[in-house]
């Protein structure tokens, strides 16, 4: 029960941190940081994918309200969470996941977490920036944005977990 309350609080906490703080942190007009992905990425491995998608949708929509881009973050978050299930199956560590195991840095180590998070974050950003640009009109600039933002977000995810892991 207490676990659920923490999850509910961290939902709103990460949402507010994203829209009040990290919305203003954009490096060189290209590198964005979407720290709210931490919330979706660190859900327990065995979470029901349907529930997780609903949560991703709610989180994305919350972000969208503040970014005035309704549907955009919701779309890319749901997309990322959908692929998360398949990706977690592919990179199962030897001996499988423990019961109630969480795909976090504290449990599985830095290397594993980067392998786990990098493609997912990349796919999220890919959908996000290309849908926002409305197609491939500014292809190379958009791709550059995607790559830089992926690196920035991933660095932030790792640092946040090193700082605040329990």
């Amino acid at each position: 029960m207490s676990f659920n309350i923490i999850k509910v609080i961290s939902f709103f906490f990460l949402l507010l941190v994203q829209v009040l703080l990290f919305k203003n942190v954009v490096l060189f007009h290209t590198a964005f940081c979407f720290i709210y992905l931490l919330y979706l990425l660190t859900f327990p491995v065995e979470t029901n994918p349907l529930i997780l998608m609903a949560i991703a949708f709610a989180m994305g929509l919350g972000i969208d309200i503040f970014y005035d881009s309704v549907g955009l973050h919701a779309m890319s978050s749901v997309f990322m969470v959908y692929l998360r299930g398949y990706w977690l199956n592919r990179i199962t560590p030897q001996g499988g996941y423990d019961r109630n195991s969480m795909p976090t840095l504290a449990v599985n180590g830095v290397q594993w977490f980067i392998v786990y998070a990098l493609p997912l974050v990349f796919v999220h950003h890919l959908v996000l920036f290309f849908v926002e640009a409305g197609g491939a009109m500014y292809f190379w600039f958009t791709l550059f944005k995607v790559v830089m933002s992926t690196l920035f977000t991933l660095a932030a995810l790792v640092i946040a977990q090193l700082l605040f892991s329990r």
């Binding site: 994918p49 609903a54 994305g60 955009l72 919701a74 779309m75 749901v78 849908v131």
Partner: peptide
């Protein structure tokens, strides 16, 4: 394939919202 269909429903809602906006 419930997970895929849920995924599809959410994406359709998102696209609808995007177009509306």
């Amino acid at each position: 394939y419930r997970s895929f269909f849920t995924f599809l429903v959410f994406q359709i809602i998102c696209v609808w919202l995007l177009v509306q906006n």
